[in-house]
């Protein structure tokens, strides 16, 4: 009998599978928190988890409402500052993977967390950058996690808060930026980026989802290879850890 799991759980598991033991990972809030704690409890016990405000390797026993909640700082082995984490670790070039989320992403992995447009042409101001622009600019690679909707995977986005490959090709490198987005994980599929054009490319489709489901809910057409495999589903132990240990109150998993 196939396992029952939610799209959010699959996204968290897919995020965790991208992480390797010994890596340094900069984490925002929400699904990336679940993905990184899951990796640390399974495939990457020696991974280092960073929160921008000055927290390294916390071991929370209660779920917090955000990075400003002392619940998510519990049992950290370092409590320091922005200059220490975003400066001496991230800006110095020591972050292997940064997780990013957003309101909108375009085909080159540029992210918007600043402005939300409505059909009347009015804009609402949202969160802005926080450490997201810094992570997008300085991490060796980034992983974008977001919902798969046409208004979120957009041909043009309202505001580039955190640059991906900018206009594609070598534009990002020319601008003097390190790394760049390596994966986009949605609730329907996983993408990587074409090596030359830097356009988003379909890497795998989640079980139960069709290619049409993927393409009909995007504002642009990604590069589609001849064969697209299915995303590996979560295993029972990963689901148990998410449900019983990491997010029992389902604050992150919705």
């Amino acid at each position: 009998m196939p396992l029952e799991y939610t799209p959010s759980e699959l996204m968290a598991v897919a995020g965790a599978r991208e992480l390797e033991d010994g890596q340094v990972v900069a984490v925002g809030l929400g699904l990336p928190v679940v993905a990184s704690f899951l990796a640390k409890k399974t495939c990457a016990p020696n991974m280092t988890i960073l929160f921008e405000l000055g927290v390294i390797n916390p071991e929370p026993i209660h779920t917090g409402v955000g990075l400003a909640d002392p619940r998510v700082w519990y049992r950290a082995n370092v409590l320091s500052s922005f200059v220490d984490i975003l400066g001496a670790v991230l800006h110095k070039g020591r972050v292997d993977v940064g997780f990013l989320g957003g309101l909108e992403v375009d085909q080159y992995g540029n992210l918007n967390t600043t402005l939300l447009g409505d059909p009347q042409g009015q804009f609402r101001h949202m969160i802005g950058s926080g450490g997201a622009n810094d992570i997008a600019s300085c991490a060796k690679r980034t992983i974008i996690i977001m919902r798969h909707e046409a208004r979120k995977l957009n041909k043009t986005i309202s505001f580039i808060t955190s640059p991906g490959y900018m206009g594609g090709g070598d534009e990002r490198a020319q601008a003097g930026l390190l790394g760049g987005p390596s994966r986009v994980i949605t609730d329907k599929a996983i993408f990587d980026f074409d090596g030359v054009s830097k356009r988003m490319r379909l890497l795998s489709i989640h079980p139960g989802i069709t290619l049409e489901d993927v393409l009909d809910n995007m504002g642009f057409t990604p590069v589609i290879p001849e064969a697209v495999p299915l995303t590996e589903p979560p295993d029972p132990e990963q689901l148990r850890l998410i449900r019983e240990v990491i997010d029992p109150q389902r604050i992150y998993m919705g």
């Binding site: 950058s129 600019s137 955190s162 601008a175 003097g176």
Partner: peptide, 10 residues
């Protein structure tokens, strides 16, 4: 000097 902000609308 800083590496951040380049290539962004910020």
């Amino acid at each position: 000097p800083i590496r951040s902000l380049r290539g962004s609308d910020l």
